[in-house]
Design a protein around this nucleic acid. Structure first.
Lengths: 223, 223
DNA sequence: GGCGTATGATTGTCAGACAATTTAAGCAGA
DNA sequence: TCTGCTTAAATTGTCTGACAATCATACGCC
């Protein structure tokens, strides 16, 4: 009897139509955490053996990663994990300062619309109690703080734009030493921003947020 | 004698490694010009017959289009040309106002660095002479004006971010009736912005640009 | 050691297979 | 006629294999 051609069993079980998403998430996580180093080439045959899935799936995932600037396409050489020069990092922070400052302003303007105040206070109650010395928890709380403000700004495109800006910054900061003193200073700045938003003071909210982002830039980007 | 399997000849001659780019450009152009209507599904087999190239190439091009928000992915239904609600259009303009206003400020601050003044004046000499009643030329000059300012702002990420914002706006405006009066008003606003930049007045440049974008928004987005 | 050339590895593209899924069509029963 | 179920057709999502183009390296030659 003839041996039917065996089909590859995917590394992880997944539903039909999710392969590209699984591969994309896996690679993105690997890039953010440093599992794949900046500049490193991603060779499909190695990834096939390591993660499963097939070439076409990886190629589609590569296109998404390239669109988010996590990798760069090199003609006839596939893709490589993006390197960020200090200058480009500074440029990212410059845009982030602008967009997040605007988001804080809008959030303050709209704090009394709908359930905004309730949502913001729920987030803030949790974040303000966080222990600044627990680094992983602090990073998560920080995301939550900034994410909520951006959502409350009420612009449908702002969240995704900032997410794109933050991923490379995360790649960078992950390897940055974050001192106790710095997280505490960050906490204090969050407090200033939160108060301005809750008090409905747009100008102050924007100024405080911009200052906060500028300080993060000075801390993260080598001059 | 056996007939060797014929290979598909691509619709247009192109070099190795450019198929995805050709398909991407073709589809993007078709979407911007209205050849593919908002909401319309893009079915790969039809596109294969019409443009040439194969499924995997189209699937990769789709990922790029989806990343630029020109199409949306629908599970098990492929992709469809993105529809933009007036609200989302307004959100795009809100971000564009912010980023382009910032770009105008930076351009004014840096007008005397390097060859900035020469480059800006070269563009402006050409654009100011444009006939506002020639619509196609006006659209091109408009791109040139805004593009130069964004480049002179000196932020490496700004140009691509604004390009992404402008594509859906173009999709929309392409079908907008642009009166003679409006292009002339636009010209006059360009003049104000150009003078502020050439005079090195960042505050005025930003304010004029923001006003310019806000007026374009009022003209383009149904309230 | 420097330089052109063969060699191997990898990418870019095409083609075909098949399962999963959606949509439309056909049919049975109330 | 309407409703619900089954079937069929169309299309997507994924995997596999083929082959040309290109890049990187090793090799041989001088």
């Amino acid at each position: 009897m003839s041996n039917p051609r065996p089909r590859k069993a995917p590394a992880e079980t997944h539903r039909h139509g999710e392969a590209v998403d699984v591969v994309f998430d896996t690679l993105r996580q690997g890039i953010i955490t440093g599992r794949f180093a900046p500049g490193q080439r991603l060779v499909i045959r190695d990834l096939e053996n390591e993660i499963g899935f097939s070439r076409s799936t990886f190629r589609e995932a590569f296109r998404r990663l390239a669109a988010e600037r996590l990798v760069s396409l090199i003609p006839n050489r596939g893709v490589a994990v993006q390197r960020l020069a200090p200058r480009e990092m500074a440029d990212l922070f410059e845009i982030r300062e602008l967009l997040e400052g605007h988001a804080a302003r809008r959030a303050a303007e709209r704090i009394d619309e709908g359930d905004h105040r309730r949502r913001f206070m729920a987030m803030w109650e949790k974040v303000r109690r966080g222990d600044p010395s627990e680094r992983a928890a602090f990073i998560e709380d920080n995301q939550s703080f900034h994410g909520t403000i951006v959502e409350l700004a009420g612009n449908s495109r702002l969240p995704e734009m900032l997410k794109q800006l933050q991923i490379p910054i995360l790649m960078f900061q992950w390897r940055t030493f974050m001192t106790r003193q710095e997280t505490e200073l960050s906490q204090a700045e969050h407090e200033t921003i939160a108060k301005a938003i809750l008090d409905g003071r747009p100008e102050q909210a924007e100024a405080a947020m911009r200052k906060h982002v500028r300080r993060a830039k000075r801390r993260s980007v080598p001059q």
